[in-house]
Structure formats: structure tokens, C-alpha cells
């Protein structure tokens, strides 16, 4: 069931994509919720993964779609599997 779900997401391009430009811009194609946000740290629910961004002088643009653009000096990005979906 899990494999079928993954394949369906792939076929219909439902996966979350992350684009990083140098170390000063990151675009998340999907962002359901921002858990924590300040000028050095951002934690967001990106669907199947939780994205954590560390840096300085972080700011975000939200174009009223699903995604967000994060600007500033990005030091690190980490992805953690989102267990919420599995819990459900």
C-alpha cells in the first residue's frame, strides 16, 4: 500500500520539491504549516517531511499558494520524515 502511494505521488508529481540556490534562497513547493519561525530557525511541515532550516536573517515570502520561499543566509537544512501521516 505504501509503495503504491509513493508511486502515485511520483506519477502525479505530488512530492514535495525543494530547490536551494547557493546558500541564500530555498523554495519549498509544499508547506502545510510553519511550526517555528524566527530569524535563525524555521521549522515547517512540507507534507511527507518536516524541514528545518538554520541560518541567519531568515525571511519568507508566501505567495498564497502551497509553497514558501525562504531567504537569508542558510547554514543547514535537515529533513525528518513526517510521521503524522503514518499515525493517521
Amino acid at each position: 500500500m505504501g509503495r503504491l502511494y509513493e508511486k502515485t505521488k511520483k506519477v502525479f508529481a505530488l512530492q514535495t520539491s525543494t530547490q536551494i540556490y547557493d546558500n541564500n534562497q530555498l523554495i519549498l513547493s509544499k508547506c502545510r504549516r510553519i511550526y517555528e519561525y524566527n530569524d535563525i530557525y524555521l521549522k515547517a511541515d512540507a507534507g511527507s517531511v518536516i524541514v528545518e532550516i538554520w541560518g541567519s536573517d531568515l525571511s519568507i515570502d508566501d505567495f498564497a499558494n502551497e509553497g514558501i520561499a525562504v531567504y537569508g543566509k542558510i547554514d543547514s537544512v535537515s529533513f525528518t520524515e513526517n510521521n503524522k501521516r503514518e499515525d493517521k
Binding site: 508547506c31 510553519i34 530569524d39 525571511s59 519568507i60 515570502d61 498564497a64
Partner: peptide
Amino acid sequence: LMGFVNAIRHSDIICFSQKYS
């Protein structure tokens, strides 16, 4: 405040240059 940030995100409001500090 974090709830407000997400509320803006879930509304149709286009918000840019957002900073939380």
C-alpha cells in the same frame, strides 16, 4: 504569533518579506 503566520498562509493574502524576530 505563529498561529497568525499560519493563518495568513492559509488565507488568500499574499504576504512577502516576512520576518519573525
